[in-house]
Amino acid sequence: MLRLKLARVYEELKWIEKNAHNSALKEKSFKDFEAIERRVSNINVSMLDAKELYDLKVHVDQVRGRLKLVH
């Protein structure tokens, strides 16, 4: 179940990065990104799955940095 949640988030991040240079999608990208951040911060995992969640949070931060560079 957790891996499915994480895979969905990664797909959304991929879409945001792919469309980062599209000014027509700028507002949607930021709203979608904020929603992702909220969802990720609310995911609870066992200690066994903590690394996967931590890795996802690092990747979310990296995408945030790239979005700031583009816009």
Rank of each mutant, 00 (worst) to 15 (best):
M47D: 12
R3C: 02
K5H: 12
K18N: 09
K31C: 01
A24E: 13
D32T: 13
F33V: 04
L13F: 09
K68Q: 08
I16G: 05
I36N: 01
E34Y: 02
A50W: 03
D49T: 03
L69K: 12
D55Q: 13
V70N: 05
K28D: 03
F30P: 01
S23R: 11
L25M: 13
R39S: 08
N19Q: 07
M47F: 12
S23E: 14
F30M: 08
V58A: 06
V58K: 11
K18S: 11
V70E: 15
A7N: 14
S23P: 04
A20N: 01
L56A: 04
Q62W: 05
R66V: 01
K57H: 04
I36S: 00
L13E: 06
S41T: 03
K14E: 14
A20S: 15
I36P: 00
L6R: 03
E11D: 11
F30G: 00
V45L: 05
E11Y: 08
L67N: 07
E37R: 15
K57I: 02
N44S: 15
V70D: 00
M47A: 14
N42M: 13
L56T: 02
I43V: 11
D32R: 12
H21D: 07
R64M: 10
I16T: 08
E27W: 04
N22K: 10
H21K: 13
N19C: 00
F33P: 00
D61A: 15
A35V: 00
L69H: 05
N44E: 15
N44R: 14
V58T: 06
M1Q: 10
L6W: 04
Y10I: 05
K68E: 14
V58E: 08
N44K: 15
M47K: 15
E27S: 03
S41C: 05
S29P: 00
S46E: 11
L56I: 01
L67Q: 02
K51P: 02
E12V: 08
W15Y: 08
I16M: 13
D49K: 08
L13R: 01
E27V: 15
A50M: 09
D61W: 03
L48T: 05
R66D: 12
M47Y: 13
W15M: 06
K51L: 11
F30L: 12
W15L: 07
K31L: 07
K51N: 01
